[in-house]
Design a protein around this nucleic acid. Sequence first.
DNA 1: AAGGTAGACAACCGCCGAAAG
DNA 2: ACTTTCGGCGGTTGTCTACCT
Length: 240
Amino acid sequence: MSSLMDLEGSGSEQGWRKGPWTPEEDKLLSDYINLHGEGRWSSVSKYSGLNRCGKSCRLRWVNYLRPGLKKGNLTPQEEGIIIELHALWGNKWSTIARYLPGRTDNEIKNYWRTHFKTKAKPYQRQAKRKAEALGLENHQVQVQQPAENDHQMKMDTTVARDNDHREVNTSEKVDITTPPQGNQEMGFVHPSLTNHHQSSSPMINYYTSQEIASCPDTITLDDLWGSFWNIDDPHSGIRW
DNA sequence: AAGGTAGACAACCGCCGAAAG
DNA sequence: ACTTTCGGCGGTTGTCTACCT
Protein backbone atom coordinates (compact mmCIF):
# COMPACT_ATOMS: atom_id res chain seq x y z
CA MET A 1 0.00 0.00 0.00
CA SER A 2 2.49 2.59 1.09
CA SER A 3 5.60 0.80 0.00
CA LEU A 4 6.71 3.41 -2.48
CA MET A 5 6.26 6.22 -0.07
CA ASP A 6 8.08 4.27 2.52
CA LEU A 7 10.94 3.81 0.15
CA GLU A 8 10.92 7.51 -0.41
CA GLY A 9 10.86 7.98 3.31
CA SER A 10 13.87 5.81 3.73
CA GLY A 11 15.59 8.13 1.30
CA SER A 12 18.75 6.38 0.45
CA GLU A 13 17.15 4.13 -2.16
CA GLN A 14 16.61 7.13 -4.42
CA GLY A 15 19.78 8.92 -3.46
CA TRP A 16 18.10 11.59 -1.40
CA ARG A 17 20.38 13.57 0.79
CA LYS A 18 20.06 12.93 4.52
CA GLY A 19 21.30 14.48 7.70
CA PRO A 20 21.31 18.04 8.98
CA TRP A 21 20.05 20.77 6.71
CA THR A 22 22.42 23.47 5.53
CA PRO A 23 21.52 27.17 5.41
CA GLU A 24 21.61 26.92 1.63
CA GLU A 25 19.05 24.11 1.66
CA ASP A 26 16.88 26.06 4.07
CA LYS A 27 16.94 29.02 1.73
CA LEU A 28 16.08 26.89 -1.28
CA LEU A 29 13.16 25.35 0.56
CA SER A 30 11.90 28.65 1.94
CA ASP A 31 12.16 30.34 -1.43
CA TYR A 32 10.30 27.54 -3.15
CA ILE A 33 7.48 27.45 -0.62
CA ASN A 34 7.19 31.22 -0.53
CA LEU A 35 6.78 31.07 -4.28
CA HIS A 36 4.51 28.06 -4.64
CA GLY A 37 2.99 27.61 -1.21
CA GLU A 38 2.89 24.62 1.08
CA GLY A 39 1.88 21.17 -0.04
CA ARG A 40 2.85 18.94 -2.93
CA TRP A 41 5.96 17.95 -1.08
CA SER A 42 6.98 15.47 -3.71
CA SER A 43 7.04 18.34 -6.18
CA VAL A 44 9.13 20.38 -3.78
CA SER A 45 11.71 17.64 -3.74
CA LYS A 46 11.73 17.47 -7.54
CA TYR A 47 11.65 21.09 -8.56
CA SER A 48 13.14 23.10 -5.74
CA GLY A 49 16.66 22.01 -6.52
CA LEU A 50 16.88 20.22 -3.21
CA ASN A 51 18.12 16.67 -3.19
CA ARG A 52 15.79 15.89 -0.31
CA CYS A 53 12.75 13.64 -0.24
CA GLY A 54 9.35 15.22 0.14
CA LYS A 55 8.94 14.03 3.65
CA SER A 56 12.19 15.58 4.71
CA CYS A 57 11.23 18.88 3.10
CA ARG A 58 7.89 18.89 4.82
CA LEU A 59 9.41 18.08 8.19
CA ARG A 60 12.02 20.78 7.85
CA TRP A 61 9.43 23.34 6.90
CA VAL A 62 6.89 22.39 9.54
CA ASN A 63 9.31 22.04 12.41
CA TYR A 64 11.86 24.71 11.66
CA LEU A 65 11.26 27.09 8.77
CA ARG A 66 7.56 27.79 8.91
CA PRO A 67 6.77 31.41 9.82
CA GLY A 68 5.27 31.97 13.22
CA LEU A 69 7.15 29.25 15.01
CA LYS A 70 8.13 30.12 18.53
CA LYS A 71 11.70 29.63 19.52
CA GLY A 72 12.95 29.15 23.01
CA ASN A 73 11.73 27.44 26.10
CA LEU A 74 8.12 26.59 26.69
CA THR A 75 6.33 28.87 29.08
CA PRO A 76 4.74 27.58 32.28
CA GLN A 77 1.37 28.06 30.61
CA GLU A 78 2.39 25.93 27.69
CA GLU A 79 3.85 23.31 29.98
CA GLY A 80 0.59 23.17 31.88
CA ILE A 81 -1.37 22.70 28.71
CA ILE A 82 0.89 19.91 27.59
CA ILE A 83 0.49 18.11 30.87
CA GLU A 84 -3.24 18.48 30.87
CA LEU A 85 -3.80 17.53 27.27
CA HIS A 86 -1.44 14.59 27.50
CA ALA A 87 -3.40 13.36 30.47
CA LEU A 88 -6.51 13.59 28.35
CA TRP A 89 -5.28 12.37 25.01
CA GLY A 90 -2.01 10.58 25.54
CA ASN A 91 0.63 10.79 22.86
CA LYS A 92 -1.49 12.71 20.40
CA TRP A 93 1.27 15.20 19.84
CA SER A 94 -0.17 16.79 16.75
CA THR A 95 -3.49 17.28 18.50
CA ILE A 96 -1.79 18.81 21.50
CA ALA A 97 0.27 21.03 19.23
CA ARG A 98 -2.88 22.54 17.78
CA TYR A 99 -3.50 24.15 21.13
CA LEU A 100 -0.03 25.61 21.33
CA PRO A 101 0.30 28.09 18.49
CA GLY A 102 3.85 28.32 17.24
CA ARG A 103 4.84 25.00 18.73
CA THR A 104 5.29 21.81 16.76
CA ASP A 105 4.33 18.28 17.59
CA ASN A 106 7.97 17.33 17.38
CA GLU A 107 8.92 19.99 19.87
CA ILE A 108 6.23 18.96 22.29
CA LYS A 109 7.12 15.32 21.90
CA ASN A 110 10.75 16.02 22.61
CA TYR A 111 9.82 18.21 25.53
CA TRP A 112 7.69 15.51 27.05
CA ARG A 113 10.33 12.89 26.63
CA THR A 114 13.08 14.93 28.18
CA HIS A 115 11.05 16.46 30.98
CA PHE A 116 8.66 13.72 31.97
CA LYS A 117 9.79 10.42 30.61
CA THR A 118 13.37 10.43 31.81
CA LYS A 119 13.17 12.24 35.10
CA ALA A 120 13.66 9.05 37.04
CA LYS A 121 17.14 8.72 35.69
CA PRO A 122 18.86 11.10 38.10
CA TYR A 123 17.62 8.97 40.94
CA GLN A 124 18.72 5.82 39.24
CA ARG A 125 22.12 7.39 38.84
CA GLN A 126 22.08 8.43 42.45
CA ALA A 127 21.26 4.90 43.48
CA LYS A 128 23.96 3.52 41.25
CA ARG A 129 26.55 5.88 42.67
CA LYS A 130 25.53 5.06 46.17
CA ALA A 131 25.82 1.42 45.40
CA GLU A 132 29.19 1.88 43.79
CA ALA A 133 30.44 3.98 46.67
CA LEU A 134 29.34 1.34 49.09
CA GLY A 135 30.54 -1.52 46.98
CA LEU A 136 27.03 -2.79 46.66
CA GLU A 137 26.74 -3.16 42.93
CA ASN A 138 24.76 -6.36 43.36
CA HIS A 139 22.49 -5.01 46.04
CA GLN A 140 19.53 -2.76 45.80
CA VAL A 141 19.94 0.65 47.30
CA GLN A 142 16.84 2.56 48.22
CA VAL A 143 16.91 6.17 47.21
CA GLN A 144 14.12 8.35 48.36
CA GLN A 145 12.38 10.04 45.52
CA PRO A 146 10.47 13.23 45.93
CA ALA A 147 7.42 11.79 44.24
CA GLU A 148 5.96 8.44 43.49
CA ASN A 149 6.73 8.63 39.82
CA ASP A 150 8.61 10.71 37.31
CA HIS A 151 5.60 12.65 36.25
CA GLN A 152 4.70 13.74 39.70
CA MET A 153 8.20 15.02 40.25
CA LYS A 154 7.41 17.94 38.01
CA MET A 155 3.76 18.42 38.71
CA ASP A 156 1.84 19.23 41.79
CA THR A 157 -1.85 18.91 41.53
CA THR A 158 -3.97 20.87 43.88
CA VAL A 159 -7.61 21.36 44.44
CA ALA A 160 -8.30 25.02 44.34
CA ARG A 161 -9.77 26.60 47.37
CA ASP A 162 -9.45 29.99 45.84
CA ASN A 163 -12.73 31.79 45.60
CA ASP A 164 -11.38 33.77 42.69
CA HIS A 165 -11.88 30.74 40.48
CA ARG A 166 -15.38 29.72 39.80
CA GLU A 167 -16.22 26.12 40.33
CA VAL A 168 -16.37 23.92 37.28
CA ASN A 169 -18.99 21.30 36.99
CA THR A 170 -17.16 18.41 35.38
CA SER A 171 -20.39 16.81 34.32
CA GLU A 172 -20.65 19.58 31.75
CA LYS A 173 -17.54 18.43 29.97
CA VAL A 174 -17.60 14.71 30.20
CA ASP A 175 -17.75 14.24 26.45
CA ILE A 176 -14.68 16.33 25.87
CA THR A 177 -12.40 14.14 27.91
CA THR A 178 -12.58 11.62 25.11
CA PRO A 179 -9.62 11.87 22.77
CA PRO A 180 -10.38 12.81 19.20
CA GLN A 181 -9.91 9.24 18.06
CA GLY A 182 -9.87 6.85 20.94
CA ASN A 183 -7.45 6.67 23.80
CA GLN A 184 -5.90 3.27 23.36
CA GLU A 185 -2.56 4.93 22.91
CA MET A 186 -2.86 6.77 26.16
CA GLY A 187 0.62 6.50 27.50
CA PHE A 188 0.08 7.87 30.92
CA VAL A 189 -2.72 9.26 32.97
CA HIS A 190 -1.71 10.89 36.14
CA PRO A 191 -3.58 9.27 39.02
CA SER A 192 -4.43 12.57 40.59
CA LEU A 193 -5.88 13.77 37.34
CA THR A 194 -8.03 10.74 37.11
CA ASN A 195 -9.16 11.32 40.64
CA HIS A 196 -9.90 14.89 39.87
CA HIS A 197 -12.06 14.01 36.96
CA GLN A 198 -13.91 11.51 39.06
CA SER A 199 -14.30 13.76 42.00
CA SER A 200 -15.37 16.90 40.19
CA SER A 201 -12.43 18.91 41.25
CA PRO A 202 -12.93 22.58 40.55
CA MET A 203 -9.47 23.42 39.30
CA ILE A 204 -6.06 22.04 38.75
CA ASN A 205 -2.90 24.09 39.04
CA TYR A 206 0.27 22.91 37.43
CA TYR A 207 3.74 24.12 38.08
CA THR A 208 7.25 22.86 38.19
CA SER A 209 9.11 22.89 41.41
CA GLN A 210 11.16 25.83 40.24
CA GLU A 211 8.07 27.69 39.25
CA ILE A 212 6.34 27.28 42.54
CA ALA A 213 8.19 30.25 43.89
CA SER A 214 8.70 32.20 40.72
CA CYS A 215 5.61 31.92 38.65
CA PRO A 216 2.17 32.94 39.76
CA ASP A 217 0.56 31.80 36.54
CA THR A 218 -1.61 28.77 36.55
CA ILE A 219 -3.61 26.95 33.96
CA THR A 220 -7.15 26.37 34.94
CA LEU A 221 -9.51 23.91 33.40
CA ASP A 222 -11.64 26.88 32.51
CA ASP A 223 -8.94 27.96 30.12
CA LEU A 224 -8.69 24.57 28.58
CA TRP A 225 -12.36 23.81 28.33
CA GLY A 226 -12.81 27.16 26.72
CA SER A 227 -10.63 26.02 23.90
CA PHE A 228 -12.28 22.66 23.58
CA TRP A 229 -15.58 24.16 22.62
CA ASN A 230 -13.85 25.23 19.44
CA ILE A 231 -12.00 22.02 18.88
CA ASP A 232 -12.26 22.31 15.12
CA ASP A 233 -10.69 25.70 15.18
CA PRO A 234 -7.73 25.59 17.49
CA HIS A 235 -6.79 29.16 16.75
CA SER A 236 -10.03 30.41 18.18
CA GLY A 237 -9.46 28.65 21.46
CA ILE A 238 -6.86 29.47 24.03
CA ARG A 239 -5.89 33.09 23.98
CA TRP A 240 -3.12 34.84 25.81
C1' DA B 1 41.96 19.12 32.22
C1' DA B 2 39.86 15.10 30.38
C1' DG B 3 36.48 11.73 29.89
C1' DG B 4 31.85 10.35 30.71
C1' DT B 5 26.99 11.26 30.98
C1' DA B 6 22.57 13.35 30.42
C1' DG B 7 19.75 16.84 28.29
C1' DA B 8 17.97 19.11 24.29
C1' DC B 9 16.97 19.20 19.77
C1' DA B 10 16.93 17.80 14.83
C1' DA B 11 16.02 14.41 11.71
C1' DC B 12 14.75 9.81 10.04
C1' DC B 13 11.81 5.65 9.80
C1' DG B 14 7.77 3.06 9.21
C1' DC B 15 2.90 2.85 9.47
C1' DC B 16 -1.63 4.53 8.47
C1' DG B 17 -5.58 6.82 6.37
C1' DA B 18 -7.35 9.75 2.80
C1' DA B 19 -7.52 11.20 -1.82
C1' DA B 20 -6.91 10.47 -6.61
C1' DG B 21 -6.74 7.68 -10.66
C1' DA C 1 -13.93 -1.64 -6.14
C1' DC C 2 -9.23 -1.68 -6.28
C1' DT C 3 -4.58 0.25 -6.55
C1' DT C 4 -1.43 3.90 -6.21
C1' DT C 5 0.16 8.11 -4.38
C1' DC C 6 0.60 11.34 -0.94
C1' DG C 7 0.61 13.69 3.48
C1' DG C 8 0.61 13.21 8.27
C1' DC C 9 1.66 11.11 12.61
C1' DG C 10 4.12 8.87 16.43
C1' DG C 11 8.21 6.43 17.68
C1' DT C 12 12.98 6.23 17.51
C1' DT C 13 17.69 7.47 16.68
C1' DG C 14 21.60 10.58 15.95
C1' DT C 15 24.23 14.59 17.19
C1' DC C 16 25.72 18.45 19.67
C1' DT C 17 26.39 20.78 24.01
C1' DA C 18 26.69 21.51 28.87
C1' DC C 19 27.53 19.64 33.08
C1' DC C 20 29.52 16.43 36.36
C1' DT C 21 33.02 13.48 38.33
